[in-house]
Every structure is written in structure tokens, then in C-alpha cells.
Amino acid sequence: MSQSDDPYENLTITTGAVVEPNTSRVNKTGSWRQFKPVIDIDACIACGQCDTYCPDQAAKPVEGEDYYGFDLDYCKGCGICEEVCPTDAIEMIREVK
């Protein structure tokens, strides 16, 4: 590991190695993805099924809109959302990086 890769270079270990809550958000699991979900915003009925069944909190309402979108920082590309979408508005496509 090169030094610049270690985000915890300046870390001080607490007594008992106690950790602060909600801190895994720094880990952007979107880099795992091979397929990415895309949404047909006209077909989306904002039912929220994709959100309900997303293990990675990556399918969320888009601010100020009546459709859902994906937080690609965390989406691992599992494809559950495509399966559970009642209007087939979601499609998994091979990601070009």
C-alpha cells in the first residue's frame, strides 16, 4: 500500500479501538460495479420498491423530482432493483469505465 492510499495515515487509535458511527460512507463501493442500473424516468412511478430492496442504500428519490435515481458511489450493481421494479423502468447495463 502506498502512503497516499491510506486514508487513516493520521489516525489515533482510541482506547479499545472504539469507532465512530456512520463512518463506512467513506468506502465508495460503487467501484465494485460491473453493471449499472439506469432508469427510464418516464416509466418510473416512484413506488420506491428499488429503494426498499436495495442492500446498499443506493436507490433513492431524486431531489425535487417524481422519480428515483441511483447513488453510484455505493451501488454495487447487484441488479435486485431491476428485478423488483413493477414497471420495468430499471435496466442493468454493462458499465464502461
Binding site: N22, V26, N27, W32, Q57, P61, Y74
Partner: peptide, 22 residues
């Protein structure tokens, strides 16, 4: 839509290392 989506109060936070589709 990464910068436009609304996260609620999530007590099970993303960034966890569970396999895709866990």
C-alpha cells in the same frame, strides 16, 4: 443521479462490504 438523490436517516449505512445482492 449520485449528487441529486435524497438519503434519509440511515442507521445501516452504505459503504458496508457485503457482497452485491446480500
Amino acid at each position: 443521479f449520485t449528487d441529486e438523490v435524497e438519503h434519509g436517516e440511515e442507521l445501516w449505512n452504505p459503504g458496508h462490504r457485503a457482497c452485491a445482492g446480500c
